[in-house]
Amino acid sequence: MLKLIVTRLLGLIPLLFLVTFLTFFLLSVTPGDPASTACGTDCTQEQLDAKRAEFGLDKPLIGQYVTWLGNALQGDLGESYFSSQGVTDSIVSRFGATLSITILATIVGTVLGVGMGIVSAMRPNSLVDRTVTFIASLSQAAPGFLIAIYLVLLFAIIWNLFPATGYVPFTESPYEWFRHLVLPVIALSIAPAAGLSRQTRASLARTMGQDYIRTANAKGLPRRRVMIRHALRNALIPIVTVVGLQIAGLLGGALLVERVFAIPGLGSLALTAVQQRDIPVIQGFVLFTAVIIVLVNTAIDIVYGFVNPKVRPS
């Protein structure tokens, strides 16, 4: 098991290197001069040169990259062109909200999706099955932020059950944290839940037709045990991969949903940076997201190794 984890982690190095390379060079060829933008309109040549030196733009590109990469490895993603705050600090301070939404939506989406998938598989064409099918096709056309807006409309404006905007860190008040996250998390988890329930249903149906289910029945096991120990256990193996794929989408969706609820997360940071062409912040944001996603994928790989003995090195 340890070997699997180490192999996976080592495999990340070239991938992350490529990510930093792409992020840095693509964003560095941006048309326009960030120094002149930051300097403002009445800017003398000296002031401009000073700004360029401050941003390190006077050095050759490859040198800039090496410096940036070296700093990034130490956790320093540079400084924003516009605010004095370090990029790493502003990302870390805003990541809590985004992470809370993403994790909660992953959990809710997975639990709901797998649960409804099992019910649909056991009772095909039942009310649950048909409802889930309908929601699944609807949620393909209704993005999370749209659902979020309508949830605000119903549960915050009309019924006033949950706050319409804002975020309270968990450390300040777990209860308020929860209350502020209910609507964003529901909005974000509907689509993955619907998708997952379809996948679970299909996977379970496939598994129920396997030879080893017949064997389990021939052993005289109770139906419940056949379903859980033999069918579900194997049906969930491919589902782990699906959940992993969904996390990246959820992280992206969280950025949009944050906007609906005016939650100060990574989304607002990135949007402000894009509007201002604040390149270090965008670079830091992309790199940070990439690292998170890569780590999540690795974690999923490892979980996959746990649930699927075939990939586990013995």
């Binding site: 990510v19 693509l26 048309p31 989408g249 969706g253 949009l256 990135a270 894009v274």
Partner: peptide, 25 residues
């Protein structure tokens, strides 16, 4: 194909934000 792999691993919105970051909104 390697570059595509990286692009697909990232959330699509993040990739779009990066490209729009280059070109401006």
């Amino acid at each position: 194909m390697r570059i595509l792999e990286v692009l697909y691993a990232l959330p699509q919105l993040v990739v779009l934000i990066a490209i729009i970051g280059i070109m401006g909104p």
